[in-house]
Nucleic acid binder design. Structure first.
Lengths: 205, 205
DNA sequence: TGCAGTTACCTAATAGCTTTAGGCAAGTGA
DNA sequence: TCACTTGCCTAAAGCTATTAGGTAACTGCA
């Protein structure tokens, strides 16, 4: 019986690599055991179960992404910072599609609190220091940026923008131009007009 | 032996309901068989395999979503149309989270071509008729709107905006205001400035 | 150096999901 | 009523997940 030196750390890293190679949803305890040439049951000393493994990969991805973001933001402000952080997300998703998918895993409140999720929100807020937005608008803008980054990257990853002109890189740049323009000129709260559009929601939760 | 009258149609509908109840990734041939009180193998006469079932649910969701979009857009233009279509996506995702997740399934090119995907792009383009954008910018804007709608809805569905002020409905409205303002004032192509930001990509694909 | 204790990995077993092959009986049409 | 179609079934094999309990390889201490 040869000991290969399994640890939670190594399993999670290998799981992340596996995710990038075959897709996050193909990451399985069995596949990971095969990769280490070890029996499946052996992994259960290092990882509680399949869900636990996936969660740990998600936490790793969020951490890596936050580290890259912090590095990219250092010394930048305004549109320069906006572009840098946006590219961190996009580049990471392209380099590590499986990890990026993992980062989308829904976490329990406790896990979320212990994750790098907070750093991500802070980084986006930091970008907004370069634009003059007062408090509630700043939160709206954080959410808008998060939506655009995540939405664009995941649609692009899903192949939504391939096979059609203009190419995705160009759109990306123009969207960042657009976001920059919008943040510099964020519209004031509109007066509530009881128009015909059914834009309201009954359930507010 | 009682025949319950399985058909592909009924299976797909029931699968969609199941997805909304327990999550799209919990939709399994076995669970569906249980729901019809029928043995698992019986489903394989109506559905090729698990993947096929999921694809058909995705196609159903895309179709339903496109139908709702078309109904919402009828007779509206400009910001009114923008808001209406945006709310279709958000409301659908809240009412049918499983179906919405299904609509995100990655389709093969052949499946995508046969899907309602094209109608979605057309609807977004239709909205832009109310704004004066020339061709390449129109495509950029279509992609931006797609990204924001999808990004916001999926972050919100993942719980990203709960437990924090201001509430999600308010942000949603302010984001739509912002998009409207941006579309009315879409920035012209910036002159290429070789600045210090590493915003370019080597691989263009 | 040798032994005790820890622990890393194993075998075995149960259970669920997927998929295919082949069978029988419930409907359908002549 | 009889042949035919077909809807649902049994059976079986292969994969993943998970737990219980065993054994051999390390670790540290005398």
């Amino acid at each position: 019986m040869v000991r290969v030196g399994l640890t939670t750390e190594r399993l999670v890293r290998a799981g992340a690599e596996l995710a990038d190679e075959v897709g996050f949803d193909q990451v399985t305890v069995s596949a990971l055991a095969r990769r280490f040439e070890v029996k499946v049951a052996s992994l259960y000393s290092h990882v509680k179960n399949s869900q636990d493994l996936k969660t740990k990969i998600a936490l790793l991805a969020l951490e890596e992404l936050a580290d890259r973001g912090a590095a990219a933001l250092a010394g930048r402000a305004g549109k320069d910072a906006l572009t840098a952080l946006a590219n961190v997300y996009r580049d990471y998703a392209r380099e590590h599609p499986g990890r990026y998918a993992a980062a989308q895993l829904r976490l329990t409140p406790a896990e979320a609190a212990a994750s790098a999720g907070g750093r991500h929100a802070q980084m986006t807020r930091a970008i907004l220091r370069g634009y003059e937005l007062s408090e509630p608008d700043q939160t709206h803008a954080v959410r808008l940026l998060g939506s655009v980054f995540h939405g664009y990257v995941s649609l692009e990853l899903g192949g939504g923008f391939s096979h059609s002109a203009p190419d995705s890189q160009e759109t990306w740049e123009r969207i960042l131009d657009g976001l920059d323009a919008l943040l510099r000129n964020w519209p004031a709260q509109a007066a509530p007009s009881p128009g015909p559009a059914d834009s309201g929601h009954r359930t507010t939760r």
